[in-house]
Simulated assay, not measured.
Amino acid sequence: MAEHATLEYATAGGNDYAEHLRTYALFTALAKWGTLTVAAVLVLMWIFLL
């Protein structure tokens, strides 16, 4: 039978917590503005297409 090598897992070296916080803040801001944009489009469609 074939031999199976042991698995090696790569881990990140260091912890860039400040970059993590900036990325999360960007994600939440885009999610908020995206949601508000979709809501505004739906309201405008309701007004003009009714």
Rank of each mutant, 00 (worst) to 15 (best):
L30Q: 08
L49F: 13
L26W: 06
R22E: 09
E8A: 09
T23Y: 03
A39F: 14
T37H: 02
W46M: 08
G34F: 10
G13N: 03
L44Y: 13
A12E: 05
F27A: 13
V41S: 14
V38M: 14
L50Q: 03
V41E: 08
T28V: 14
Y24M: 11
L7Q: 09
L42Y: 11
H4G: 01
A10L: 08
L26C: 02
T11W: 02
K32Q: 09
F48C: 07
T35C: 14
A39I: 15
L7E: 11
T37S: 15
F27I: 12
M45E: 09
T37F: 15
V38R: 08
H4F: 06
L21N: 01
Y9W: 04
Y17I: 05
W46T: 13
H4Q: 07
W33S: 12
G34H: 10
E8S: 08
T37K: 02
L49H: 03
G13Y: 02
G14Y: 03
A39W: 09
L30I: 12
R22S: 05
G14I: 00
G34I: 11
T35R: 10
H4Y: 04
M1Y: 08
G14Q: 04
W33M: 06
F48D: 02
L26M: 07
I47P: 01
A40H: 00
G34T: 14
Y17Q: 02
L21R: 02
G13Q: 04
A29H: 06
V41R: 08
L49S: 10
T23R: 07
M45C: 14
W33L: 13
F27K: 11
K32G: 10
H20F: 12
L44T: 12
A25K: 12
A2D: 12
H4D: 04
W33K: 08
F27W: 11
M45D: 11
E19R: 08
A12F: 00
L50P: 00
E3Q: 03
Y9H: 07
V43N: 00
G34Q: 10
E19P: 00
G14A: 09
N15C: 08
L42R: 05
W46D: 05
G13M: 01
K32P: 00
R22M: 05
L21I: 13
H20D: 11
A5F: 04
V41P: 01
L36C: 09
L26Q: 09
M45F: 15
T6A: 13
T11G: 04
A40D: 01
D16E: 06
E19M: 06
L21W: 02
Y17L: 03
H20A: 13
A31T: 15
W46Q: 05
L7Y: 09
W46Y: 10
L44V: 14
L49R: 08
F27V: 12
T35H: 10
A39T: 15
A5V: 03
A31D: 10
M45K: 10
M45A: 15
A18W: 02
L44W: 13
Y24H: 07
T6I: 05
G13R: 03
L44I: 13
L44H: 05
G34D: 11
W33T: 15
A2V: 07
L49K: 07
L30F: 11
T28E: 05
L49T: 14
A18Y: 01
T11R: 09
V41I: 15
A39V: 15
L44C: 13
A31K: 12
A12R: 01
